[in-house]
């Protein structure tokens, strides 16, 4: 069970092996091997403190690992910061959402990648084009939004999460990484975000999903990786596992 199935590197959108990270004397995780298949939803589960979030942060360039190698799209990736990872095609949906309350939906969707028109030496925002493309981005993922001119402050948690995911997917990302995307959401909103993740998968965007929710992980993902106490202890196909088995793997009762 704990044997890690190796897939050919060309099938992996993101892979790592021998990865370790510690902060001072505290080991976050040790000797981790992990692979996410292209076009699949790959879930990482584990108890609090198992090292999931730190692993994800290493993979998207927030932290630099102490040891080990990371491959993105078949090539070694040396991302020193999230900006480089983003340029290479990895978008992260942050746990704290990273939306600007006082800006509109359209402004948030295009933040730091605004469309501009050149007029002589000046570059002016093309607001009409951004609004139009923002509507297209939202409707591509069937996100229901009253108006792209609305300030984000007024939106619900689910709508905000939808915009975060839409922004991540809308930039032509090859891989979208989500850390607990439904942690703070109600039942209906969680269902909406789950539907959104399925649509991403339909559009062949690879997704890495960190979650506490075993049922959600089994519903959404193709492959599940289990971390326990800083180690990657198992990986299973979602279709071939049960909730009880996942609980056993996470707690170490197996």
């Amino acid at each position: 069970m704990s044997a890690v199935d190796r897939i050919p590197p060309s099938e992996a959108i993101l892979a790592c092996d021998g990865l370790s990270k510690h902060f001072g004397g505290i080991r976050a995780f040790t000797d981790v091997a992990f692979q996410a298949r292209r076009g699949e939803v790959t879930a990482v589960i584990g108890d609090n403190g198992a090292g999931k979030s730190t692993l994800i942060r290493c993979l998207v360039g927030v932290h630099v690992p102490d040891a080990g190698r990371i491959f993105f799209d078949g090539r070694p990736h040396p991302f020193a910061n999230p900006d480089e990872a983003r340029k290479a095609g990895i978008e992260t949906v942050h746990q704290n959402l990273a939306l600007i309350d006082e800006l509109t939906v359209a402004q948030n969707l295009f933040l730091n990648r605004e469309i501009v028109r050149r007029i002589g030496p000046f570059a002016l925002l093309d607001r009409a084009a951004m609004k139009q493309r923002a509507r297209a981005m939202l409707s591509r993922l069937s996100i229901n939004m009253p108006s792209v001119n609305q300030r984000v402050r007024r939106l619900s948690g689910g709508q905000r999460q939808a915009i975060s995911i839409c922004r991540a997917a809308g930039s032509g990302a090859k891989l979208v990484v989500m850390d607990e995307p439904t942690a703070a959401l109600g039942v209906q909103e969680t269902a909406n975000v789950e539907a959104l993740i399925r649509r991403l998968r339909e559009q062949e965007v690879s997704v890495i999903l960190v979650s506490h929710n075993f049922d959600q992980v089994r519903r959404l993902s193709d492959q599940i990786w289990v971390m326990r106490a800083g180690r990657m202890v198992a990986t299973v196909r979602s279709s071939q596992t049960t909730g009880n088995e996942l609980v056993a793997l996470v707690t170490g009762a197996a």
Partner: peptide, 25 residues
């Protein structure tokens, strides 16, 4: 303020500085 990238980034910085930084501003 309203028609340049600088203006949007200025408001984003003032609104949520950590979020703006996380997006590469």
């Amino acid at each position: 303020l309203y028609h340049t990238r600088f203006g949007v980034h200025l408001l984003a910085t003032g609104g949520q500085v950590e979020s703006a930084g996380a997006l590469g501003i």
